[in-house]
Design a protein around this nucleic acid. Structure first.
Lengths: 169, 169
DNA sequence: GAGACTGGTTCGGAAATGCAACTTGAGTAA
DNA sequence: TTACTCAAGTTGCATTTCCGAACCAGTCTC
C-alpha cells in the first residue's frame, strides 16, 4: 500500500486508489454480482487469492469505498457495503467493460451481462446506482423512486443465463 | 508483461491491458497534453522513469493502442500515435478524472482542465475524439465535420492557465 | 569535433503477487 | 463435549514486477 501522492491530477489520484489488477474486480463483484462476504468474493472467476483479497478489502475500506460491518446474530459473518463514492464508480466500471467488449476477446457469457448495461445507457446506470444505494446504504438513500421494473442486476443475470444456455444447447 | 488470461469478463480483460499505475497516465498525456515523443512523456508531472515508460509504450504498441513511427528527416525522432481503440478510451479517462475530482484532493490547476471536459458532457467528448482522430489517424478519420470552435485541448489548456494565474495571484 | 538531444538499456534493491498451508473463533449436530 | 464445518482471514516463502539512478549509442547542430 503506497502512501506518497505523485501529483494532484485527478486521473493520477484515481489511479493511486484504483490502479491495479484487482481492486476494480473486487468492486465489480460487489456491484454486479452482489457479493458481500469474503468467501463470495473469493469465488469470483479470476480466483483471487485470499491474502490479496484481504489486502484489497482493507485498502477499499481505508479509502472509504467499502464499509465493513459485523452481524450480531452471526458473529463471524462480516458484511461489506458500498459507500456513495464506490457507487459513483458504476459509470467507470461500465465504461471499462464496454471498451473491453468492443476491443478484446470477451466470453459470450460475460458479454451478455455487460450488453444489458451498455444498451440501457446512462439512464439505466442511474437506476442501477439507485438500487445499489437502497441495498447498501438504506432505502432512504435513493435519489428517485423506483420505476418498478425488475432490478437491473437480475436483468443482467437473466441475460447471462440465456447466453450460457445458448452456448451449451 | 503477462500473457495468461484470468477470465473472459470484459472488465477483467480491460484491466489486464490497462490495470496498473502508469498505462493510463501515459495515454492521458498523449490525449490531453498532446505528448507524442518519449522525452515529452517523460516530462509529465508524475515523473515516470524511463524504463517504465519504455515498457509501457511497448505494451501499448503490442496491444494496439499506440502506433510507433519514425521520421525520415530526423532519424532518431520517434512519434507515437493513438489508434481508434485508444481514442475510444477518452470517456473512460474522463470518468476516471471526474470521479477523482469529486472524491479526491485534486489540485486546482488540474481540476480546471478536467472540469472543461466534465461540463461539456458526452457531446464534447465526441468532438474531442474526432479532433484526436484527425490529429493521430488522419483528416479523413473524422466522423463528423468540425463545428469550427477552438480545439478542446486548447480550451482545457486555457482553463488550466487561468486556474494557475488565479492561484498565483 | 564538442556538446546536446534522441530514444532508449542496465542494474540492483524494494515492493507486489500468488500459492499453499495454517489459524482463530463461532455455529451445529450427535 | 466432542467432533465437524464454515467464516474470515494470517503466515511463510518463492516468484514476478516495479522503479530510481545511472548509463549508453546513435543523430543533429554548431
Amino acid at each position: 500500500m503506497r502512501k506518497d501522492v505523485r501529483s494532484g491530477c485527478p486521473v493520477n489520484l484515481s489511479l493511486e486508489v484504483l490502479g491495479d489488477r484487482w481492486t476494480l474486480l473486487v468492486l465489480r463483484d460487489v456491484v454486479f454480482v452482489g457479493a458481500r462476504h469474503f468467501r463470495e468474493l473469493l469465488a469470483g472467476p479470476e480466483r483471487i487469492s485470499s491474502n490479496i483479497l484481504a489486502d484489497r478489502l482493507a485498502s477499499l475500506v481505508e479509502h472509504g469505498l467499502l464499509v465493513r460491518s459485523g452481524n450480531p446474530e452471526h458473529r463471524q459473518k462480516i458484511t461489506y457495503s458500498l459507500t456513495e463514492a464506490a457507487i459513483q464508480l458504476v459509470p467507470l466500471i461500465v465504461q471499462l467493460g464496454s471498451w473491453g467488449l468492443r476491443h478484446l476477446p470477451v466470453t459470450d457469457e460475460y458479454a451478455a451481462r455487460m450488453r444489458v448495461l451498455e444498451s440501457g445507457g446512462p439512464a439505466l446506470w442511474d437506476e442501477f446506482m439507485d438500487e445499489l444505494r437502497e441495498e447498501h446504504i438504506g432505502p432512504r438513500a435513493r435519489l428517485r423512486p423506483s420505476a418498478g421494473d425488475p432490478p437491473v442486476r437480475s436483468r443482467m443475470e437473466a441475460a447471462r443465463l440465456e447466453a450460457l444456455a445458448a452456448a451449451t444447447g
